[in-house]
Amino acid sequence: MLLQNLYKHSKHFLSNSYNNSLQRILSKLCPCGDKEFTMASQEVISEVIPLIEEAYFVKTDKFKNYGFTVTNLHKSLFKLKKELPNNEQIQEILPYYWYLYGPYSEVVAKAAERMESEGLLMREQNVLYLNRDKVTQEVPVDRDVRRGFNSALKHFNPTNATPFIERIYKEYSPYSFMPAFKIDFVNTIKEYISNLTLGQITLDDYSDTSVLRDSIFECETELPPHPLFDQFNTLFSSFTTDALRVFNYLREVDKDAILLNKVLRMAEDTVWTTFACGIRIVEHDPPYATRLKRWNPMYSDSLSELSSQVRAFRSDVLSTIRGTLRCEQDEKSQKFLSTVMQKTLSR
């Protein structure tokens, strides 16, 4: 159910999206409904519920009655698992895989869903709060877990969880491409667009798109060196070419950043979704091995989708900028490798 809810939320989130490729891909992800959760036996879920309850009792002196979004709950228990590498029980009952929003556990999802249905958790605007009428005191968990939670959530700020999530990506992502793309590149574009919208960007700043170019350069040079991603990497490089064209065009012509918005949507909706469909195939805990039969064809489908989107995107970009195309041999704008190195060397 929770995965289906995630699907529903994603559909809602994407309803105004530039393309509906993610919707199409996601629509294929939940064909079996609850059958998918067979690994999350009631017994395991019962063991995870006290862990979730415990998460609400960490740092209560700082934040009273704070809540977790489902995403933050996944990340918090993932961090706990990483804090306790020698705790066999925790390692066993919290199987994870990397996916669209980082580390994801179907067991945690199912446990949270059960707690909500039993009234232990209450949902308010997508945030889950502990029902302190029903759970009045700290649950008896072992000291190792308590210590692990304290350490895991040391930097967690429920009013602004973004740094916590970014830290998870930067510390634990299996490939450096992931934070480079999902965090740095996407945030850089969003910030640029936001500054533009707020009028906080001067014409000089606006012309300087080197920050965007540096960012995608980092992604392209950190592509995952795993055979599963060979085709993805090829398509990503094509996306890079067109993103670079847009950044150049932006500084010269596209003052409304229409094409830049398209780069962002393409990055978030199609490129990242495809990568996420692949990463869970190579980065999952052993209990999910049975899913590979379903995940492999889904990844193939998402690659086909990415391939057609990359071609359509190029056509879109070239049809807009054709008049400004030229060989760039002497253009300062193209010299991003050297600007990146200049910055690296001057550090």
Binding site: E328, L337, M341, Q342
Partner: peptide, 16 residues
């Protein structure tokens, strides 16, 4: 930097 410029001029021009 000179090393980078040399390489990127060649590659960028090829793609453009």
């Amino acid at each position: 930097i000179k090393c980078c410029k040399m390489a990127e001029d060649s590659v960028n021009n090829a793609i453009s």
